[in-house]
Design a protein around this nucleic acid. Structure first.
Lengths: 145, 145
DNA sequence: GTGCCACCTCAAGTCCACTTGAGGTCAAGG
DNA sequence: CCTTGACCTCAAGTGGACTTGAGGTGGCAC
């Protein structure tokens, strides 16, 4: 009787119940039974949800997560895919780092127009560069709660 | 007569004309006139589009970009906002770095179940951590062309 | 036993950043 | 002059990840 109902899971992981139902529907998690109507989950689901959060935060779609992540961790089927995802992340990290530095600089720089600032223009160059290659497009969505 | 028509801009920055029209509609860029029906842009728009690309790649919504980025660079009105965006980016960078390391490890690690691997569990810990704080939620979308 | 309320299902709606499609227009080339 | 083709407008559609709403049900407290 150590199973958790949907509300307990929801509270523990900070994910709305509607999302848990949605994930179940998508086959990303599975409930082990019901108490009345109420879904019951094995505590393992917490770890699995952490894995899902991790995958999401790294830019995997739910569909990819379903394909690549198993309850034992990462499926080994496609090492090349894992490696190339890692390479993509390297690109994202570089851009984010540049952007972060640019923002910090902009917050401190007293110059009236950043377009005249060499630091800022270097930053811009980076963006143009990767717009040009257009290979691995990456978007980051970051929002404050 | 050094203005560029929409097609020239589109080719130079690798952004579809439809997107340029969309950006104009949103007030992110402005055309300086027409040749017939055809929009004409000041070459400055290239720099501006680079700035937009940069902002997007750092997780700003178009709406935020409109508010924060001017044609002279970054609006100075809200340094706190810039700094806090930078902090958010720090968080994203940390997670992405963890994920990248995790993926690289997974691609190489011969263990059958990653849940038993300390390296992988450490990675997971990171994800759980930020699920727990739930303050600065960040999503990264990365797709190969 | 009976009422409440949190859960259930299923369909539809929302948000963001675009893209697509239908129907129209105009500068340039033949 | 007339065709052509690239651009135009405006409305609607797309995809991903959920959320919301209407209407239903069952365990638990009283």
């Amino acid at each position: 009787m150590f199973d958790l109902d949907i509300n307990e899971v929801s509270k523990k992981v900070g994910v709305p119940a509607s999302t848990l139902r949605f994930y179940e529907e998508k086959g990303l998690i599975a409930s082990v039974g019901r108490r009345g109507l109420r879904r019951l989950f094995d505590p393992d689901v917490l770890e699995r949800l952490a894995l899902i959060a991790l995958g999401r935060s790294a830019g995997f779609t739910l569909e990819e997560i379903g394909r690549v992540f198993t309850r034992e961790g990462l499926r080994q089927i496609d090492r090349k895919m894992l490696a190339s995802k890692a390479d993509e992340l390297d690109g994202s990290i570089r851009k984010l780092t540049a952007m972060r530095d640019g923002l910090r600089h902009a917050a401190a720089c007293p110059a009236p127009g950043h377009m005249q600032c060499p630091t800022f223009r270097r930053l811009l160059g980076l963006a143009v560069l990767r717009t040009a290659d257009a290979k691995a497009r990456a978007r980051v969505r970051a929002k404050a709660s």
